[in-house]
Computed example of a mutant assay.
Amino acid sequence: MRKVLYALLLGLVGAGIVHIVVLLLVPQFSERDAWSRLAMKSGLYTMTRIDDQTGGPPVVKSVDPLFFAASCRFDLADGIVRLRSPIDNLPFWSMSVYDRNGHNLYSYNDLSATEGRLNAIVLTPAQMIGVRKTLPEGLEGSVFIELPISEGITVVRGFVPDASWKQAVARFLDQASCEIVDFAS
Rank of each mutant, 00 (worst) to 15 (best):
Arg84Asp: 11
Asn109Ala: 12
Trp93Cys: 02
Val63Pro: 00
Val122Asn: 11
Ile87Lys: 11
Thr46Gln: 15
Asn101Ile: 02
Leu83Arg: 00
Arg32Lys: 14
Leu5Thr: 00
Val22Gly: 08
Ile129Gln: 13
Ala168Leu: 03
Arg82Tyr: 01
Ser62Met: 07
Thr46Pro: 00
Leu5Gly: 01
Arg157Ala: 13
Val4Cys: 00
Ser42Ile: 03
Lys166Pro: 00
Lys133Gly: 14
Lys61His: 10
Pro148Asn: 15
Leu83Pro: 07
Arg49Lys: 11
Ser96Pro: 01
Pro27Asn: 14
Ala126Lys: 14
Cys178Gln: 09
Val143Ser: 12
Gly138Asp: 07
Leu44Gln: 05
Ile149Asp: 04
Ala176Ile: 01
Pro125Tyr: 14
Pro91Gln: 09
Ser94Tyr: 04
Lys3Arg: 10
Gly152Gln: 08
Ala70Ile: 07
Leu38Arg: 00
Asp33Cys: 04
Tyr45Val: 03
Gly56Arg: 08
Leu111Gly: 14
Leu25Tyr: 09
Leu76Pro: 06
Met128Leu: 09
Trp35His: 08
Ile149Trp: 07
Arg100Asp: 02
Met40Phe: 02
Arg37Pro: 00
Gly43Ser: 06
Leu105Phe: 12
Pro58Gly: 01
Gly158Gln: 06
Asp182Pro: 04
Arg171Ser: 15
Ala163Ser: 14
Arg37Ala: 05
Ser62Gln: 09
Asp51Lys: 06
Ser94Gln: 15
Asp174Gly: 03
Ser96Ile: 00
Gly56Ile: 00
Ala70Phe: 08
Ser94Glu: 10
Val143Glu: 04
Gly102Val: 06
Met40Gln: 10
Ala15Cys: 13
Met40His: 03
Val13Pro: 10
Ser96Asp: 08
Gly16Trp: 04
Val59Trp: 02
Leu123Cys: 09
Pro58Lys: 09
Val60Pro: 02
Leu139Ile: 11
His103Ala: 12
Asp78His: 14
Val26Phe: 08
Glu140Phe: 05
Leu38Asn: 03
Ala77Tyr: 04
Val26Tyr: 08
Gly43Val: 02
Gln28Asn: 13
Thr154Tyr: 06
Leu10Gln: 06
Ile20Thr: 11
Asp99Cys: 03
Arg171Pro: 00
Leu9Phe: 09
Ser150Asp: 15
Lys3Phe: 01
Val81Gly: 00
Glu146Leu: 05
Ala34Arg: 07
Ser142Ile: 01
Gly141Phe: 04
Arg117Gln: 13
Pro161Ala: 04
Ala126Cys: 05
Leu118Ser: 12
Ile149Met: 10
Val21Leu: 15
Asp174Ile: 01
Ala69Val: 02
Leu24Arg: 13
Pro65Lys: 05
Tyr106Gln: 06
Pro58Trp: 04
Leu111Asp: 01
Leu147Tyr: 10
Arg84Cys: 00
Ser62Leu: 09
Glu146Asn: 15
Pro57His: 08
Val156Ala: 13
Pro161Leu: 10
Ala176Thr: 06
Phe92Tyr: 15
Glu140Thr: 08
Ser112Asn: 11
Phe183Ile: 07
Ser177Leu: 08
Gly56Thr: 13
Gln28Val: 08
Asp88Pro: 01
Ala39Asn: 13
Leu8Thr: 00
Thr134Glu: 12
Glu140His: 02
Tyr6Trp: 08
Ala15Arg: 12
Pro91Thr: 09
Gly158Ile: 04
Phe172Lys: 11
Leu24Met: 07
Met95Arg: 03
Val81Tyr: 01
Val18Arg: 08
Pro27Ile: 10
Tyr108Lys: 12
Asp174Cys: 01
Lys133Asp: 13
Arg171Thr: 14
Ser177Gly: 13
